[in-house]
Simulated scan of single mutants.
Amino acid sequence: MNITIRNFQFDDLPALVAVINRAAEADREETTTIGDLRARLERPYFYPEQNCFVAALPDGEIVGYTTAEIHPSAGLGWGTGCVDPAHRRQNIGRTLIETADMRHLELTKITPDMALSVSRICRDTNESARILYESTGYAICRANWFMHIDFENTFDETQLPDGFGLRAFDRERDARMVWAISGEIFQDSPGFAQPPFEVWENFMFPEGHDDALWLIAVDHQLDDETVAGICLSKPKHNKPNTGWVEPLGVRLAYRKRGLGSALLQRSFYVMHKQGYTAAELSVDAENTSDAVALYQRAGMQADCCYLSYQKVLHGTVQD
C-alpha cells in the first residue's frame, strides 16, 4: 500500500482525533478530544508541525501518527502514536516509529559522552503496540500501576502529623518554588527529567485548574515557610469528575513521619468537597519507598498497568 509520511498540520486535528479514538477503543487506551489534543500539541517547545508526523493514504485519509518529543539536555526522548485498527499489519507503525527515531536524533545535540534514549508507553494489554515496539528495538524498562478510588463515602478532614501545617497555594508566589521542589523530590526516580518551567507550568495548570487542590505542607516547627511535602491534583483530562494526583512527594528530611499518607487523605477530602467523584494516580510498580502500599492503605486499588518501553538511539544509558 502506498503510504505517505508527512508533517502534521492543524487542519488534520479532527481526522487525527478520530484515528486516535478508534485505536483507543480497540486497545483499551484512553480517548481524547480535539480540545485536549490541541492543548497537548500546542504546549511550549514542542512545535507540532515539525515534530508530529501523520501517515496518509493516497486519497489523503489519515491512518496513523507519531510524535518526537525531547529533553535534549537530559538525553531523553518520548514518543506517542497509534495506527488505525483497519490499517494495521502493513508496516505503517514501523515506518512512523523509524521516522520519529530519526527526528529524535536530529533534535538532540549529540556529544560523544551523552546517550540518547527514547521511551514509549502502552497498556500491558495492548498486544498490537507491544509487538510493534519490540519489533522496532524497544524493550520494557518499567511498569506503572494506575490506581483508582471511588469517593463512595465521605472523608474526614485529615490533620497532618504534629509539626506540619498547610499553606495556601498562590500561583504567582509559589509556582516556581513548587516546580523546583518537585524536581528535588523526584530527581532519583527512574526515568525522571525535570522539564523547563514553562513546559511544567503548561502541563500543571490546565483549564479548570483549582488552587484548592494543591496542598503544600510546611514545617511549623521551623518557620512556617519551609516546604516539607506537596500533593498536587487537577481534573483528569478525559474524566472531568475524576481528580488526577501528580505529584505526591515528601522531601527527604521529612520522610517516614506519615506526611505523605496524610497529604493523600487530605487531598481526597478536598476533592470530594469540590465535587469530584473519584481520584487516580500512577506509581512505579517497583517503587522502593512503599508507595504502592501507602496508596492501598488509603483505599486505592490498581486499575490497570502501563508499560514503559525504551530504545537507546545513541551511546550507553546507565541503569
Rank of each mutant, 00 (worst) to 15 (best):
Y254M: 04
G260M: 08
C231L: 02
R257F: 02
K236E: 12
A262K: 04
Y254T: 01
K236D: 11
L259Y: 06
R255I: 04
V250L: 06
R257P: 01
T226R: 14
L252Q: 14
V245R: 01
P235D: 04
G243D: 00
Y254C: 02
Y254W: 06
K236G: 10
P240H: 09
S233Q: 12
V227Y: 04
V245M: 13
L259S: 07
S261E: 15
L259W: 07
N238C: 11
L248Y: 06
E246S: 14
E246A: 15
G229F: 11
G229D: 06
A253C: 01
K256A: 13
P235N: 08
V227K: 04
P240G: 11
G258H: 09
A228I: 08
K256W: 03
V245H: 02
T242D: 01
H237F: 14
N241P: 00
A228W: 11
W244A: 11
A262G: 11
L248G: 03
S261I: 00
P240L: 10
T226M: 07
V227W: 03
S261C: 01
G258A: 06
G249W: 13
N241I: 05
C231Q: 08
L248T: 12
L248P: 01
L252D: 12
L259N: 05
V250H: 09
A253I: 01
N238H: 15
R255E: 04
N241W: 04
V227G: 03
L248V: 15
G258N: 07
R255S: 05
S261M: 13
A228F: 10
E246P: 06
N238P: 02
S261D: 12
W244I: 00
C231R: 06
A253S: 14
H237M: 04
R255Q: 15
K256Q: 15
C231Y: 03
L252A: 14
P247A: 05
H237Q: 09
K236M: 11
G243F: 01
L259K: 06
K256G: 00
N238T: 14
G260D: 05
L259H: 07
L232R: 12
G243C: 06
V227T: 11
P240V: 10
R257E: 13
H237G: 00
V250Q: 05
G243N: 00
G260N: 09
G229R: 12
W244L: 14
G258R: 02
T226C: 06
L232E: 00
R255M: 06
T226H: 10
V250E: 02
C231F: 03
T242S: 13
P240M: 05
A253N: 12
G229S: 09
N241A: 14
V250F: 11
R257T: 12
G229H: 12
